[in-house]
């Protein structure tokens, strides 16, 4: 039974890894076409993606700007909502938490279409900042959840203890609440970062073709067929995801963030 279980997990891992491995291998192709296994292996495509091809370097810069901007903005918006929800549990905070999670819960194409209209009226359509705000709103649900988990893990008697030692609410927030929720805040930040990096449907509607992120660039040139340079982009993105989640696992409690029971190991 045990071996059967391990076998099943291994099989799942294999299927999960299969397309990723194929894409990685295709990046080594020497020619302009995708083959697997690669023909004429070379690393020249990496140079094209990171250095010499302006289409890709611009797209990469845009991706980075949008991802970091959206992650920062999402965390900044999620913090007060999560804090209000935790400290007051008021109707308003519940409403805001619900609304903040809404865009993430509906098919993204619907929210993308809506945001396209929205920025069209407001005048942000095709501007990079509108892309940043759009992603922040779309993915705000993630830091909202991680920060809430972090706040719930704080023992309320810690706040009482701080108060009996002379800490005002502001000082207690700075010295007790904030330090204990830092790992959760960073996790939330990284979740947004990675998902924004990979998102393209919403970006497609709000960019209005005036700029492109990496995923969008690939999406746009879909009909012209794949090139090995695209595969390089894929490898880069996978590497970033693995790195980020490893960091979260290393410095945060990943099983707990994913909702595992605390008491068991």
């Amino acid at each position: 039974m045990k071996t059967l279980g391990h076998l099943y997990m291994a099989l799942a891992a294999l299927v999960l890894a299969l397309p990723i491995v194929v894409v990685c291998g295709a990046a080594l192709n020497g020619g302009r076409s995708m083959f697997f296994p690669p023909r004429d292996p070379t690393l020249a495509r990496f140079g094209e993606f990171f250095v010499s091809e302006p289409v890709w370097t611009t797209a990469l810069t845009n991706s980075v700007i949008v991802a970091i901007g959206a992650a920062t903005l999402a965390v900044l918006m999620a913090w007060p909502v999560a804090y209000m929800l935790w400290s007051t549990g008021s109707k308003l905070s519940k409403l805001l938490a619900g609304l903040g999670s809404l865009p993430f819960a509906v098919p993204p194409i619907v929210f993308g279409v809506g945001l396209g209209f929205f920025w069209g009226f407001l005048g942000g359509l095709g501007d990079l900042w509108a892309g940043v705000v759009s992603h922040a709103i779309l993915l705000m649900a993630l830091p909202l959840v991680t920060i809430s988990i972090g706040l719930q893990s704080i023992d309320r008697s810690h706040l009482d203890a701080a108060a009996t030692m002379g800490a005002t609410e502001a000082i207690a927030f700075r010295t007790v609440v904030l330090p204990q929720t830092v790992p959760y805040t960073i996790s939330g930040f990284f979740f947004v970062l990675v998902l924004s990096f990979n998102e393209f449907i919403v970006m497609f509607f709000v960019s209005a073709s005036s700029y492109a992120t990496v995923t969008l660039q690939i999406f746009n040139s879909l009909r012209n067929g794949y090139t090995p340079t695209m595969a390089v982009a894929a490898i880069t993105f996978i590497a970033v995801s693995v790195l980020v989640f490893s960091a979260v696992a290393r410095w945060g409690d990943l099983p707990r963030l994913m909702g595992a029971d605390q008491s068991r190991n």
Binding site: D155, D160, T175
Partner: peptide, 18 residues
């Protein structure tokens, strides 16, 4: 409470883990 500053020991001790 923060103006009274009566020292208090809590049931769970409430020591700051960080």
């Amino acid at each position: 409470a923060h103006k009274r500053k009566f020292g208090m020991v809590f049931q769970s001790f409430a020591l700051f883990p960080h």
